[in-house]
């Protein structure tokens, strides 16, 4: 059973690594820490797998673990400036330089900067919805909110993002439905 448990968590890692990585990266904007926290997410999942019930999917369960880690981190420290590379400041070296990825993606860089400025709850719903493509039901499970609260928060977050971009003379932000 122990073997199966380990095998199962490794399978989950292969299936959900990208989703969890993106969520943590865009929430914290720190690649080095991101890799550590992805690791911590799956280690915690392994430790808690016995208590996982099938009421939620594995995906939402893993996201809820990652959410706790991320919020904990945000509370613990004065958050390092998200996506500081947008200001030309080098982040802690990681295996991948996101600056390279953002080269010639000026609008995407701008969008990330605006997401960075959102309060954590807004940032979470925006990322879960528009980047990780979670449904309202899944977001409600991950955040432990009602679906109504998810919809309301998302609406406010998107409005805030739109206003922020409009002020900058940027494009309209559209919510992907």
């Amino acid at each position: 059973m122990e073997k199966d448990k380990r095998q199962l968590v490794m399978e989950w890692y292969d299936l959900y690594y990208d989703d969890i990585y993106r969520f943590i990266l865009f929430m914290l904007g720190d690649q080095q820490v991101c890799e550590d926290f992805v690791h911590d997410t799956f280690v915690r999942a392994y430790a808690a797998v016995e208590g996982f019930d099938n009421r939620s999917s594995v995906k939402t369960w893993l996201f809820s673990i990652a959410k706790h880690i991320v919020l904990d981190e945000i509370r613990k420290r004065k958050r390092r400036s998200l996506f500081s590379f947008t200001n030309g400041v080098k982040e802690i070296p990681s295996l991948f330089n996101m600056e390279e990825w953002l080269e010639n993606r000026e609008e995407v860089r701008q969008l990330l900067t605006e997401i960075e400025k959102l309060r954590p709850n807004y940032r979470m719903v925006v990322i879960l919805k528009n980047i990780d493509e979670c449904s309202s039901k899944e977001m409600a499970e991950i955040l432990n909110w009602s679906e109504a609260k998810v919809r309301k928060t998302l609406s406010r977050a998107m409005k805030s993002l739109k206003e922020s971009r409009d002020r900058k003379g940027g494009r309209q932000i559209e919510q992907i439905t």
Binding site: Y17, E35, V38, H39, F96, V108
Partner: peptide, 22 residues
């Protein structure tokens, strides 16, 4: 942003590290 794929190398290293931890 949705298409952003973490580096394969990081994933492999992470897999190895996770395996050791669990």
């Amino acid at each position: 942003l949705k298409s952003y794929a973490p580096p394969e190398e990081a994933k492999e290293n992470g897999r190895h590290r996770l395996w050791k931890s669990i």
